[in-house]
Amino acid sequence: MKAGGEDFLIKPVSSDQLLPAVERAIAHHKAMLNLKQTRAQILSRLATLTPRERQVFELVIRGKTNKQMADALGATERTMKAHRHGVMTKMQVRSLVELVSLTSEPRIGR
């Protein structure tokens, strides 16, 4: 089980036990593969952010306003809006909710 076993079957195994166990294992594998692919896509998008956009990204997902980000980073609100737009574009999201949801699920570690 430690090496990744899905189920424990005792011999002799009937087809009524084996087939559902194999189907569960395949379904679990597909779900894990999908999660890994999604995580890799998100991480590759994160890698496209500039260092400043990464700072803005971190502040945005913490719920900071453009004014708060500008004060924290020593820039203007207009500059923060531009960086925020860059973050949204590179992360391929349309809303703040989508951006936060990318990071709130166990898909990526911050």
Results as ranks from 00 to 15, higher is better:
L73R: 10
G86H: 00
L43T: 07
E6G: 00
A82F: 06
G5R: 03
H28E: 01
R84K: 11
L9E: 09
F8Q: 07
S95K: 05
A25S: 12
K2Q: 14
T65N: 02
Q68V: 05
M69Y: 05
A27K: 13
S14V: 02
V60H: 01
M88H: 01
K81F: 05
L35I: 00
H29E: 03
A31I: 07
S44C: 06
V97T: 14
I26F: 09
G74D: 07
A27D: 14
G63Q: 08
R54S: 15
K64C: 12
K11Y: 12
Q92T: 08
R24A: 13
V13W: 12
A70Q: 00
K67W: 15
K90C: 01
L9Q: 09
G4T: 04
M91G: 03
V13C: 13
A31C: 02
A25T: 04
A27H: 08
H28V: 00
S14A: 08
L18I: 01
V93F: 03
L99F: 04
Q68F: 10
D71I: 02
V87K: 07
N34R: 15
G74N: 08
P12W: 15
R45A: 08
A47W: 00
L96S: 13
L9C: 04
S44N: 13
M69W: 04
T38D: 02
A70I: 00
K90Y: 01
K36M: 03
P12Y: 14
R94C: 11
P51E: 04
H28L: 05
L46V: 09
P20T: 05
V100G: 02
F57M: 14
S15G: 06
E77Y: 04
F57G: 00
A3E: 13
P20H: 04
L96N: 14
Q92Y: 04
T38I: 00
N34F: 08
N34S: 11
H29K: 08
L18V: 01
M80P: 01
R94Q: 15
F57E: 07
D71V: 04
L35P: 00
L35H: 03
K2A: 13
L19N: 07
L43R: 15
R62W: 06
A21H: 11
N34Y: 10
A21Q: 10
S44A: 11
T50K: 00
K2F: 14
G86K: 00
K90D: 03
F8R: 10
L96R: 15
A27I: 09
H85W: 05
L43C: 11
M80Q: 02
L18R: 03
R52C: 03
K81T: 13
L46N: 11
P20C: 04
V13Y: 12
L18M: 06
L19D: 08
L46C: 15
I42D: 02
V56W: 03
Q55C: 09
V93R: 05
A72P: 06
M32P: 01
R24K: 15
T38S: 01
S14E: 11
A40N: 08
A40Q: 11
T48E: 12
E6W: 00
A82M: 04
A3R: 15
L49D: 10
N34V: 07
K67H: 15
E58Y: 04
H85G: 00
N66V: 15
M80W: 02
D7A: 01
E23Q: 15
S95A: 06
T76D: 08
L46A: 09
A72Q: 13
M32G: 01
T48Q: 12
A3S: 13
T38E: 07
I26N: 11
V60K: 09
K36R: 07
